[in-house]
Design a protein around this nucleic acid. Sequence first.
DNA 1: CATCAGGCGAGAC
DNA 2: GTCTCGCCTGAT
Length: 268
Amino acid sequence: MINIEKQYFSLKQISESGQCFRLEQLGNERYGLTALGRYLEAQENQEEISFFCSREEFESVWKDYFDLGRDYGKIIACVEEEDDYLRKAVCYGSGIRILKQDLWEMIISFIISQQNNIKRIRKCIDYLCRKYGEEKRTEEGKIYYTFPSPEKLANVPLEDLYACNLGYRSRYIQKTARSVAEGELDLRIVQSMEYDVAKSELLKLYGIGEKVADCICLFALHQLDAFPRDTHINKVLERQYTEGFPFEKYRGFAGVLQQYIFYYDLKN
DNA sequence: CATCAGGCGAGAC
DNA sequence: GTCTCGCCTGAT
């Protein structure tokens, strides 16, 4: 078991912020995360978070996944004094971090997210994993399912995708899975591209537009300049930033601020 | 019963 | 380039 001081780190807020759909609350302070082909349980109280894994696994996998090498206090400190709205937002969601999630999983997850709510997105992804993912078992006997590969999803008949309640996104998922499986887009190469280049490559995939491409850049590629604009964010920008959001002042981490704003708006 | 959820592609202009 | 429209499904 590994204990982490809970400064700028809240599993509850990360889970609720809607960037990760497979981090679920199991009990009052207990969380389960399925990611990177693994399963991790964690416990969170006021002061600290306990990870139930070895020191080695924590150091080699989860430390990077949770972006623990970055000082989010420094980002929060950059928020302008006179921007009351943003100061309230970062204060309210100060435990949010931007995770480094799997690229393929984020591509499909955020295709599913369009015109959809978090509860149903989770349900769809869970169903896809149970049906087409690989069944695994932890040492403690917990059964979990990995995220299905591009090859696997490419071969699922359209009607079976519809049966997963994916709706019109079924066609997007099938076409995108086939594009990736056939090597039209090499995901390993996308990982090392500049933000603008990676985004334009993602936009070529069927079912991926501006908003979804930015979500993928932010939550998988860790391109912190990506600033996904959904209906909520657009309303906030119209309401709070009639002169325009000061992107130039927050270069290099505007996407993190987007998450604070999204979360604050979602919960208030 | 209507409306809306973290949009997108296709077609018109 | 910009605009409009239709789209699966479940919750309210």
